[in-house]
Design a binder for these strands. Structure first.
Lengths: 246, 246
DNA sequence: ACCTGAACACCGTTCAAGT
DNA sequence: ACCTGAACACCGTTCAAGT
């Protein structure tokens, strides 16, 4: 089995493999499929994730998308963990972080954390893998360095800056993970209905045993549509951090 | 196959099955193993998690601990997701939340969030399962209700209370997840060495490309031992929330 | 009603063998 | 050096069959 029938979905392109002319029978089996590489594997993994969802992101599916077997990936990547790290680093490398403007540093920080949040939201499955690991890839380092520059324009103690970057990154990642789990299980309409059901359940709880949940059932369910809840936590954190300026 | 040879590890106890006396041949095969139940399954799952770690927490291992096959669990539990929810609810039910003391509400909130954090830290694997789900079990509802009581003593708008509980719970859960992933992969000594290596890597980065990471390499690695970083974020959040009092 | 053995459709990773 | 088929040791879940 060479290749060919493995990827019939994509439309023909200029670099599509031509039929082998019988007279130039020098190389009987040229590997028309591009050779494997770390980048090609990350490309394929991103494609699998975006089109089939986080549950489909397996070494086997990625290999299948490349027209090979799962064992072939291990020549370029030490395992699934490293592949996820490479995917996260590609995500980080794509983030745009502005040059620091001292007068607007708080707003700039919020913009960056929103960008991190939305990036992980766009590729569910990466947020979970980003937790518990200290980023060391070039893309992540670049992003963190530029984010640190903004914080340094805010006249904060260095230790506060370091902790602040950490906690804000965790916040964005964790929130994206949560939203991803939530979105993965149901469509927007189902989510609406689910939230309403939970709200009714809370409101119907025996008020003598759970008086506060019953009293606040409305508010506990509010703001589920947009980014209001995310913005609330972001606001609280940045305000608290800003209060540490010297 | 009845039971008996499936659990040869534990020492003999008073309720160990005695050899069948041949003269009382009424019931040839009394089910000496206690019948399955939701509680028994949750017990066994907690045992598997605590003694063998989160990676070992599979339906098959839980069934094995109960001396049966995995299919038997599905008569009492709809699947692994529900089992995890039941485990989380047991965790929540064990949390102690004090009666509200209006003068100390901020400190009381911090105590509660610390308790949530430490509870998830003690049972790694549950934190990840707690994200993206709205808790509805009796244990979780009870805990949330008592936590809401403390917030209501703080004279905050109802919407702020609702968002605050949410964001603080997410913070505690996410931080515990992160710490759990970190602790799972290495011992305390290995963690120490790992952090030091990362610190050296950061300090050795080309200062012209990553000036801020290089300059702050010390601070970026600080406070990894204790709960300083967790406390920092908790402080920022509670301070920000308290500033919303009317 | 509760339990079970066996199977289904997957995983990540390893390894000897090929080129 | 790079790639591969086949296998290993697992998963969660289903289902017909038993009692």
């Amino acid at each position: 089995v060479s290749n060919g029938p493995h990827e019939p979905r994509k439309p023909a392109r200029d670099d599509a493999p031509l039929p082998e002319p019988p007279w130039s029978s020098r190389r009987p089996k040229p590997p028309a499929r591009p050779p494997l590489s770390r980048d090609a594997i990350v490309d394929a993994a991103m494609g699998v994730l975006d089109t089939h969802g986080p549950d489909a992101l397996s070494m086997r599916r990625v290999a299948e998308a490349l027209g090979t077997g799962p064992a072939s990936l291990y020549a370029h990547v030490s395992g699934k963990d490293e592949l996820l790290e490479l995917m996260i680093d590609r995500l980080a490398a794509g983030l745009q972080v502005p040059d620091p403007d001292p007068a607007r540093w708080q707003e700039q920080v919020k913009e960056c954390i929103r960008a991190v949040y939305h990036a992980f939201l766009a590729h569910p499955g990466l947020a979970a893998a980003n937790m518990g690991k200290i980023p060391t890839g070039p893309g992540a380092i670049r992003t963190i360095d530029r984010l640190l520059a903004i914080f340094r324009a805010g006249n904060l103690p260095n230790l506060v800056i370091a902790y602040a970057v950490d906690v804000l990154m965790l916040y964005a990642t964790a929130y994206a993970y949560e939203q991803g789990v939530y979105a993965e299980r149901m469509s927007a309409e189902e989510g609406e209905r689910y939230l309403q059901q939970i709200g009714e359940y809370f409101a119907a709880l025996p008020a003598d045993r759970f008086p506060n949940v019953a009293a606040l059932s409305q508010e506990l369910m509010a703001g589920g549509e947009g980014d209001e809840r995310f913005e609330f936590g972001l606001e609280m954190l940045v305000a608290g951090i800003a209060s540490q300026a010297r």
